[in-house]
Design a binder for these strands. Structure first.
Lengths: 367, 367
DNA sequence: TTGTATGCGTTATCAC
DNA sequence: GTGATAACGCATACAA
């Protein structure tokens, strides 16, 4: 210790107002050694009740707050988990991140958030990941299985536990997600059962993310299986967003006016809400003249009116499970068994292409 | 150095596969001292081009990544900024946080996110803040001026630069926000100009957050100033959210059926979207039979249909400015002058209580 | 149970 | 320009 001791009986007992109070300060005030303070704080059971009490009081009096950097340096762990999630304003990622953060916080971990936009991440993923690694994280959650090539090798090189959020079956590492194809099948089967034959789709950009890709491919499969027609002029990709859904639906109405689809499927509820607004503005009655169905990422589509049939997708649960998965890895436990996440079709005011009578018939027939 | 040197000519040149590569390793490979490596990496201009090159190559070969904890310990700064933001799934906070993160990331800072729910934060704010302090942050952004009492004293005790997001004029510290009262006035004046006399309000909980409180009080003032009537049965508080807006609007329709308001103001666009859905479901034509106006927190209400008149509120800008403010504090510069954030009224399909003719007259008259 | 001593990986202050 | 060396604040193995 180089810092000169200040008179222990000085009025305020704060030696140097500039310096932040450290273990040594607490030790001095409590009249014990620094090691004892360290143990009293983090391994109370190793210390006698009496001294522990003295230490606690001293720490309290001084307003001691541990220095995480020093601790991290000594313990070689930061109690911090990184989250690498693209730009999420106006998406459903916040819900996911929130759930992840909550799960981690309950176990004493903090979340370090990095939210580059898509373009920047594609361009400089290694640098972004590296910044996270430098800052010090014990584990990492990444959104989607679609990662730039360098990412996985960096993770491997640093032996960093990680999990892919909202992804299925990646060869690259553990994933937490759900069966997008099944979700798409639920929607399409429902529409087919109602008697719809020609449907359209407004979805996210398949080039950008594997979620949109899987959702779309699931749709294609189900459409083929049920012998439906996916109307080309009524099928397009866009960014996720309310405005985007609105404009996409306008475009669809215009492009397919010769022979429009009787039902539209939207890739998420922002798109669906926008699409409904566009239909309303265009005077297209829903669901009488056109049905709309959607994937309910945001707990959101379930309350739209005109009513929308949705597949309720467990976003929050992904965050929780991912957190648990990471925590398990960090504790050296086995990862929890990959329970399949439940999907639920919420049917609201659906109608077949020929109106309610046909719909009732279809319901009796199809299930 | 206690670790035994491995033969420098070993095939893979990786001494100990378990250990993470450090400055010393790079130094050894480059044949220079650790100090030189440190400088070559962080203060390149202090090093000759030749050795710098050698160091860079060595670092690259070894996949060196700096240890932030050690750096933080030595430099007494973490290059990390904390954000303490309550539950933000389904709110407009993500937009704000995203903007903050982007602003900080561009200047080399990372964001440590803590997102407790409101109840937990009220109950254990000191513990939550303390966790952030322990983890090591150079500055902190907090949402709202409403903070539990212990928070500001903790911040002061640790001399931590901070800023209050989406808040005005708090005596406790610097704020970045906009004039909620003016925003409310824009909406109310617009409705009054159209000839509305009786309006209702669905807003956030004023007990929980000062934003809702200010928004509501601004509304009250403007209503009084224009001599309007705020219909009691059509005025209520709720959580922010789509579902909440839907249910609140249903409640309003029921409670005020004797003499309903001719216009509803909603506290944010989630509430407004929900309210529109409820009106649609109830068969209330908008805006013919009832006008709806809202504060557009999410870039969202501007695309709803039936159309909604909104005050466009600069959430993103708050995040950016807060980031700049913190960065300025961290660099010891003066904080940027508190430029007033712009508010804009976006008029869409508004109608007066007696229909379009009256509206046209009112527009000519009122402005 | 408690004190002592050392290392964690960097940066910074000196000399050279 | 570059190399030694001393902090930075904490945890922990080892002694007592």
């Amino acid at each position: 210790m180089t810092r000169p001791d200040s008179p222990p009986d000085s009025p305020t007992a704060r030696p140097d107002p500039q310096r932040t109070v450290s273990l040594a300060d607490v030790a001095q005030l409590a009249g014990v050694s620094p090691g004892t303070v360290s143990r009293a704080l983090s391994k109370p059971e190793m210390i006698s009740a009496a001294t522990r009490q003295r230490v606690l009081v001293a720490a309290e009096r001084l307003g001691y707050v541990a220095n995480g950097a020093a601790r991290a340096l000594a313990m070689r762990k930061t109690n911090t988990v990184g989250a690498l999630v693209p730009r999420f304003g106006g998406s459903s990622f916040p819900t996911l991140v929130q759930a992840l953060e909550t799960t981690l916080a309950l176990r004493g971990y903090t979340l370090l958030l990095s939210a580059p936009d898509h373009a920047r991440y594609q361009a400089e993923a290694p640098a972004i990941l590296r910044a996270l690694l430098e800052r010090g994280i014990d584990a990492l959650a990444l959104l989607g299985a679609d990662q730039p090539p360098a990412v996985f090798s960096l993770l491997a090189a640093h032996r960093l536990p990680f999990v892919l959020l909202w992804a299925e079956q990646s060869a690259h590492g553990p994933c937490v997600g759900f069966d997008e194809q099944a979700a798409a099948a639920l929607v399409v089967d429902h529409l087919a059962d109602l008697g719809h034959r020609r449907i359209g789709f407004i979805g996210g950009r398949t080039a950008d993310n594997d979620r949109a890709r899987r959702r779309f491919s699931g749709l294609l499969q189900a459409v083929a299986r049920r012998g439906l027609t996916l109307v080309q002029e009524a099928t397009l990709e866009t960014e996720y967003g309310f405005r985007e859904g609105f404009e996409a639906m306008q475009a669809v109405l215009w492009a397919s006016q010769a022979l429009p689809p009787t039902a539209m499927v939207c890739g998420n509820d922002y798109l669906a809400a926008g699409a409904l607004s566009a239909l309303d503005q265009a005077g297209v009655a829903v669901p009488a003249r056109m049905s709309v169905a959607s994937f309910n990422d945001n707990d959101f589509a379930a309350f739209l009116h005109p009513p929308l049939t949705t597949v309720r997708v467990p976003i929050r649960r992904i965050g929780e499970l991912a957190g648990q998965h990471l925590l398990a890895q960090l504790q050296g436990e086995m990862a929890p068994q990959p329970e399949p996440l439940p999907l639920r079709l919420v049917v609201r005011g659906s109608t077949g292409p020929a109106g309610d009578a046909a719909t009732a018939r279809a319901r009796r027939a199809g299930g």
